[in-house]
Simulated scan of single mutants.
Amino acid sequence: MGLFDGIIGNASEVNLEKLREEVNDLLTPHETIKNAYKIIRDTLIFTDKRLILIDKQGVTGKKTQYHSIPYKSILHFSVETAGTFDLDAELKIWISGNELPIQKNFNKTTNIYKIQSVLAEYVLGK
């Protein structure tokens, strides 16, 4: 279901070593990638310092927007688990200064509790 999940906007986990090579220039010298998820061409990266959203734009995907969200800017977040007939789990993140949340869907095999745990660790403090 990988291609189907991508088409409907669901995310899957990314190999962190390969991703680290691709985004090394985005990271600060002491920043560590904790988890990462890919949705078709877009990527969510959870580091120990911030959340990075990578949005590939255009037909070729060469134009890219990098959105960096410090954890202190996250007001609150919610997760919704996948159900029997609902094939995706959902993450919503409310950012200071934005009325609407950032919303991402994950396939049923993604551990939404792990994502919630990573966010909670950094938003709530260690």
Rank of each mutant, 00 (worst) to 15 (best):
G2W: 03
F4E: 14
F4T: 06
D5H: 06
D5P: 01
G9A: 09
N10R: 03
N10C: 14
S12C: 12
S12V: 14
E13N: 07
V14R: 05
N15Y: 00
L16R: 09
L16V: 14
K18L: 09
L19D: 04
R20W: 03
R20C: 01
E21G: 12
E22F: 06
N24T: 12
D25M: 11
L26D: 07
T28V: 05
T28P: 12
P29V: 00
I33L: 08
I33T: 03
K34F: 05
K34N: 09
N35P: 03
N35F: 14
A36H: 06
Y37P: 03
K38G: 08
I39R: 07
I39F: 12
I39K: 07
I40G: 04
I40F: 13
L44C: 09
L44E: 14
I45C: 05
T47H: 01
D48R: 02
K49I: 01
K49R: 04
K49W: 03
K49C: 02
R50F: 09
R50D: 10
I52S: 06
L53C: 11
I54V: 12
D55T: 08
D55A: 10
D55F: 08
K56F: 03
Q57E: 15
Q57H: 07
Q57D: 14
V59H: 13
T60I: 07
T60A: 08
G61L: 06
Y66G: 01
Y66H: 09
H67V: 12
I69M: 05
I69Y: 04
I69D: 07
Y71D: 02
H76V: 04
S78N: 13
S78T: 13
S78K: 15
E80F: 02
T81Y: 10
T81F: 06
A82V: 10
G83Y: 02
G83D: 02
T84A: 15
F85S: 11
L87F: 12
W94I: 03
W94H: 05
S96K: 13
S96H: 10
G97E: 15
N98P: 02
N98T: 10
E99F: 13
I102M: 06
Q103Y: 04
Q103G: 01
N105K: 15
F106Y: 11
K108T: 06
K108Y: 07
T110V: 15
T110K: 00
I112R: 02
Y113W: 08
K114T: 14
K114I: 13
I115V: 15
I115A: 05
Q116R: 10
Q116F: 11
S117T: 11
V118F: 04
L119S: 00
A120V: 00
A120R: 06
A120Y: 05
E121P: 05
Y122C: 01
L124A: 14
L124C: 14
G125I: 02
